[in-house]
């Protein structure tokens, strides 16, 4: 059974008990992203103070992977600066391109915390987009937030 390698316990926990879910005020930018091949959707708001991410709030519908990925991302990025968060996003992207190579996951473990559990997803090309949707939305939202607040990154 290969399923467990993708659906790690941590992923299922995030899916069933998502962290930070719900749309909150205040926010500087709100984005809506969809995955046109499957119809998964997320609305994501970002609140920055200076260049620190004070809150990320979201509503979405989609599969366990897409929903758990947002929840794990929330844990990772709130409290970080925007450049730090985007750097983490780059690491997550690297993990998604690893084609299941365990050495990549090992190296990224400290940086990605719970999100390293998504390593198994990288073996399933059709699901990588599900895991990446939240990170794409974050990148988009933070760029917009910084351009409206005039923050430097």
């Amino acid at each position: 059974m290969q399923l467990e390698s993708m659906y790690q316990e941590i992923i299922l926990d995030h899916y069933k008990n998502p962290h930070g879910r719900g749309l909150r005020e205040p926010f500087e930018a709100e984005v809506h992203h969809v995955n046109p091949t499957c119809g998964d959707e997320v609305t994501l708001r970002i609140h920055v103070e200076g260049d620190t991410i004070a809150d990320v709030s979201y509503e979405g519908m989609g599969c366990s992977i897409s929903q758990a990925s947002i929840s794990a991302m929330y844990d990772l990025v709130v409290g970080k600066t925007v450049p730090q968060a985007l750097g983490t996003g780059e690491h997550f992207m690297t993990l998604m391109q690893a084609k299941g190579d365990p050495s990549v996951a090992e190296k990224l473990e400290d940086e990605l915390e719970d999100a390293v559990a998504f390593a198994g997803v990288s073996k399933y090309p059709a699901r990588i987009k599900c895991a990446l949707m939240s990170w794409m939305a974050l990148k988009d939202a933070s760029a917009r937030a910084l351009s409206t607040t005039g923050g430097q990154s």
């Binding site: 989609g62 599969c63 992977i65 699901r127």
Partner: peptide
């Protein structure tokens, strides 16, 4: 169970 996840288990 989201359809994607149904599909993944069926695929397995």
């Amino acid at each position: 169970v989201h359809p994607h996840d149904v599909g993944q288990v069926l695929d397995d």
